[in-house]
């Protein structure tokens, strides 16, 4: 594990909600991030099919998009979600780990634009895609 990935993983598990969902950093850097979320019965949204609730996928997407913003070469000091849209293509297969990959493809002075995709073990058919806008907080010189 390189230093940047190690730092990102430490940052990720310092977020209580991400830790509660069991997220692990797979890779990050250059405005890109990938995070795994293992299947867990507590995340089930539909008791009949045992499929993970969309909200858990949203939480994974939101986290992954935020991490992509952080690893952008412009290095924002902090970020927050302005909006996030998720399209659910199909149900994630019960029992399988979900992988999210996000790219921060544009960063202006105040706003970062991000795209993400979530997959289960069948990487050829996405479970969901996301597009979001995030704030860019830059460190002011006047910090005391």
């Amino acid at each position: 594990m390189n230093d940047e990935l190690k730092r990102a993983q430490e940052f990720l598990i310092a977020l209580p909600h991400s830790r509660a969902l069991g997220m692990t950093m797979v890779s990050c850097g250059g405005g890109e991030a990938a995070i795994l979320m293992p299947y867990d019965e507590k995340l089930i949204g539909d008791p009949k099919t045992r499929v993970v609730h969309g909200g858990a996928v949203s939480a994974l997407m939101d986290t992954c998009c935020g991490m992509a913003v952080f690893t952008h070469p412009d290095r924002p000091y902090s970020t927050a979600t302005i909006d996030l849209r998720i399209d659910y293509m199909r149900s994630a297969t019960p029992g399988q780990t979900i992988l999210a990959e996000a790219t921060c493809h544009q960063m202006t002075r105040n706003v970062a634009f991000v795209r993400a995709v979530a997959m289960d073990e069948d990487r050829s058919r996405p479970v969901a895609t996301a597009t979001g806008a995030f704030t860019v907080e830059r460190k002011t010189e006047a910090t005391s």
Binding site: L15, P16, H17, G45, H53, G54, G55, L60, D62, I86
Partner: peptide, 27 residues
């Protein structure tokens, strides 16, 4: 609950927890 926190420094609810809450309420 503590596990709903995203940024522990502020502290603030995780955007994902908020999204999940909204989606669950809608559904």
């Amino acid at each position: 609950d503590e596990k709903l926190i995203g940024n522990p420094m502020i502290p603030a609810l995780h955007g994902g927890a908020t999204a999940a809450f909204l989606e669950m309420t809608a559904m």
